[in-house]
């Protein structure tokens, strides 16, 4: 343990910047998962595979076709929006229609199956080699000894933009209000003429687009690879459990919190400790506050 490092402001500043950088990435990863769970009650186990598809889209659009990175990210988000909409409408909607209120367990199994299919398809089609890039954008700056890369600034900016856009969409638009109403009482929403089937398709597509955009944005950190989604799925689950299931904003706060913990743990202890500390936090949250740090407590029988 190197607690003496905490006496150096520049090092502490670097830990914070690194932690914020990771945390924002984790938060962005968890938001799509939290959105889908919060509105539909469905845990999308294929979330990581959606990220994987996005990294391939970004790689081919940005590297092979030479399209600018921002457009590549948009392509990845749009591609996953369409994929998510097709999956929800083609497979989840019929499942819900057939099983009524008892569709969720089958839905979980279906997304697990989808994850397996997508990973193996990627392995067959793309092979086991990683496809990545070194940096989305070059350059860095130093403030009082704390180094901040331009790519990290880009990720911060995108995170702020995504959170603000999503908040505005949910609060200020008719569709956003209909989505929020459906998440609380689908029966009451239907009784007011809201097309809940359409809301679910849009929600799933939006959650997929979120992780799609993130996959494109993080290509330099997470290169395209068939099983790259496994790590992303675990990180997403961690931020969603710690923040509170279904709470999109809590996922971002929990992501930042975990990023900071990881950064300090790695700096003060060693790289091996960060996962143990995070696992301990998850266990403590599950034991003492199972609804998550930023959601209303749930009573247990």
């Amino acid at each position: 343990m190197h607690f003496e490092l905490l006496a150096h402001p520049a090092i502490v500043g670097q830990f914070i910047i690194d932690g914020l950088g990771r945390g924002v990435m984790y938060g962005l990863m968890g938001m799509g998962l939290a959105l889908i769970f919060g509105i539909m009650g469905l845990i999308n186990f294929a979330h990581g595979s959606f990220f994987m598809i996005a990294t391939y889209i970004m790689y081919f659009v940005a590297v092979h076709l030479g399209v600018p990175f921002p457009i590549g990210i948009m392509f990845a988000a749009l591609g996953l929006f369409l994929f998510g909409a097709a999956f929800e409408r083609g497979l989840i909607t019929p499942l819900r229609a057939r099983l009524g209120r008892n569709w969720l367990v089958d839905g979980y199994v279906m997304t697990i199956g989808l994850q397996i299919v997508l990973e193996n398809l990627a392995l067959i089609v793309m092979g086991p080699r990683e496809h990545g890039i070194s940096r989305l954008i070059q350059g860095r700056m130093s403030v009082s000894g704390v180094i901040l890369t331009n790519e990290r600034i880009l990720i911060f900016s995108v995170a702020i933009m995504v959170v603000a856009t999503l908040a505005a969409f949910m609060r200020l638009t008719s569709l956003g209000r209909a989505i929020r109403a459906t998440s609380e009482h689908p029966d009451a929403a239907m009784a007011m003429g809201i097309d809940v089937r359409r809301i679910y398709t849009i929600t799933f597509a939006l959650g997929s687009a979120l992780i799609g955009g993130v996959g494109g944005l993080l290509l330099s950190t997470y290169p395209a690879f068939p099983t790259i989604g496994s790590d992303v799925l675990i990180k997403s689950f961690i931020v969603v459990i710690v923040g509170g299931l279904g709470n999109v904003w809590a996922a971002m706060i929990a992501g930042i919190l975990l990023g900071l913990v990881e950064s300090f743990a790695q700096g003060i202890a060693s790289a091996g400790w960060q996962n143990s500390i995070i696992a301990a936090i998850v266990v403590m949250v599950l034991v003492f506050r199972p609804s998550g740090l930023f959601s209303k407590p749930i009573s247990r029988p």
Partner: peptide
Amino acid sequence: IARTFQVPRTFNNMTLEENIRVALLQ
């Protein structure tokens, strides 16, 4: 056909105004 529920199913995380606005969408 409009209905209410025995246990009120108001949208509790939305404001009263938003509750009415959601209904007005129809």
